[in-house]
Design a protein around this nucleic acid. Sequence first.
DNA 1: GTGGTCTAGACCACC
DNA 2: GTGGTCTAGACCACG
Lengths: 131, 131, 131, 131
Amino acid sequence: MIIHIDPDGDLAIYDQIIRQVKFAIAKGVVDAGELLPSVRELAKELTINPNTVARAYQELQNEEILESVRGLGLRICAKAPKKCQQERQNLIRIRLASILQEGLQSGLTADELKSLVQSELQSLKSGKATA
Amino acid sequence: MIIHIDPDGDLAIYDQIIRQVKFAIAKGVVDAGELLPSVRELAKELTINPNTVARAYQELQNEEILESVRGLGLRICAKAPKKCQQERQNLIRIRLASILQEGLQSGLTADELKSLVQSELQSLKSGKATA
Amino acid sequence: MIIHIDPDGDLAIYDQIIRQVKFAIAKGVVDAGELLPSVRELAKELTINPNTVARAYQELQNEEILESVRGLGLRICAKAPKKCQQERQNLIRIRLASILQEGLQSGLTADELKSLVQSELQSLKSGKATA
Amino acid sequence: MIIHIDPDGDLAIYDQIIRQVKFAIAKGVVDAGELLPSVRELAKELTINPNTVARAYQELQNEEILESVRGLGLRICAKAPKKCQQERQNLIRIRLASILQEGLQSGLTADELKSLVQSELQSLKSGKATA
DNA sequence: GTGGTCTAGACCACC
DNA sequence: GTGGTCTAGACCACG
């Protein structure tokens, strides 16, 4: 699992970590039962403060994505993959609805939006390398 | 032009004002050359701090959406309507692309995304009253 | 609302704050809509680090007990009183069940436990002043 | 005496061992004078770190529950059964008092608590198989 | 070695 | 003034 941090982005660093861990779990890059890199290790790798990593891991525990195994580290919960996938799909649906609604409100027709979607999907497909 | 503020929302209040002003201009609710309510007036109307209104107006001036007219107040620039429309459409296209890309990455196919778009548009159309 | 901290207790300080805030809300000592003492203020009052207070407040926000009001402070959510009362009663029931079970396992009979409960209630009633 | 360890539980492993040893002594499963399994043996059986077993045994010696017998191992002290029983009952009484007090503080009446106790005892009796 | 907690002090955006 | 985030460095319990 590779995590990339953008310290200048809008999102807090700890939030970026949370999202990327969830994303990796949802995609199956890491699976239930696996141990995550230790707080100190990940902090060193990303050259950020261990506290920041700890905070991200802490919230993932609160959401029952990770569980602490005394003396060993943090492990991905059994139900985490399912949870992360569902959460991700929900997020996508909600954000899609909101952006479509905004499109309608600014005067675009449903057909215009659909063709916009079509063309964006095309360019994403062709530009796959950049993804 | 009616502006509505949600003090509990995610967005900063000054940002809500900026967006709604731009939105109103893009939609043609207000047109180039018109004067906006004064800082004090709008602040009173929205029962928020005048500093907050001033900050929003300031930023709109920086973006050349508004221009100060000595002794009169703030007026909508001649090029503002075009600018706001373009900015809005750009925003929508960018956000649409980003959400579609995310959808693809999380394993949805292009067809699944298209039908998702279709169904969301349907439900938006039927639930128009709430918009 | 008075919060008392025992820095040598088993519970983390931030956890003591969380519990006492929830307790105060459940009891109605503070009500929905009220603002809590600011992070810095409470930290000063308890002579602990502001970060520790912030962490407690942060978790209370995650649980939707508090909500942040930009520039003003943290306010008790509308649904918080109900939520806190229910949570508290659940906790009591669970802990009661666990302690009773342990009693049965260590050889006490149901009747012995009931009379134990009776006598403890008596002494709590009479010693009310110490509570 | 069978000891069962839950490595994912809230309690430290060494603490689980301590409690279960004390519990077994209190119930008479093992009696004064008997020898306990050696550190290495128990560690192997529970597949945990020998340090962890050693720590538990150490603490039991400090509390004069166990005594070291040169060349033989660790033996249950003569006074241990009495001690463990009393400690257990004290613990139960104290925790019962605390939870009852908390119940009263959160607005439940003595009668409500008593009927709560009654119903919990009922459900424990019927669900005995799970205990 | 691991995570968990706390302190101290800094900077930011917002009102 | 408010909360939100991050850094730095310390100590603890656990295995």
